[in-house]
Amino acid sequence: MISALKTILSYELKLAWRQGSTGGMAVAFFLVTVALFPLGVGPEAKTLASIGGGVIWVAALLAALLSLERLIHSDLEDGFLDQLALSPWPLELVIFAKALGHWLVTGLPLVLATPLLGVMMQMQAHSIEVMFYSMLVGTPALSFIGSLGSGLTAMVKKGGLLIALLILPLYIPTLIFGVSAIDAASFNGDPVPHLMILAALSIGAVALTPFASAAAIRLALE
């Protein structure tokens, strides 16, 4: 079991590294998207600070979403998934490893980039700190729920828009609790309960979505 995890994870990481790092592109996308908001809304510090948490979270959702289209589809095309399906490892474990790999390659770089963006959005130090934690706790949910969308659209040739339509509504609870933790921090509230619920959402997604994704991918492999 552990060896399977290691094998798939190292494969994912190598692939990401060789393809010019999807994580780097996701972070670049994340930065550009957030930078558009001051240009659109205006540079006033008060406005930017008040919308900062929401903007950064929405940009993170989109960055995660854009990198999901290829998550399963490319492995299906080059036959890697067929091989994995023939291996003794359960497909659920394979999907778990792939989603974890997606988080390490895409989610984690986004988390690390948030403090910088928080400063650019004129947020207070305490809010930025809480935002960092909320992203750290919340982004696994994005990768794992996303793996489900990726699995469901694996059979579809151009699934990018379809993934967005399927997955964005399911991302809403994560978005709400992620942003509400930041808001609580900015208004001198206690962000911990928000972060707890966010963590619960992530744990639920990590525990449950591999089964649904595996069921969806079995369809594509048939």
Partner: peptide, 28 residues
């Protein structure tokens, strides 16, 4: 047949999410 199964998986995931969405939106 594949569409039916994929859509069924989505519908079930959706129905698990309906109360979570309701709860989160009320919280928000």
């Amino acid at each position: 047949q594949k569409a039916a199964k994929a859509a069924a998986i989505l519908a079930i995931v959706g129905v698990i999410n309906v109360p979570i969405i309701k709860f989160s939106v009320e919280w928000w």
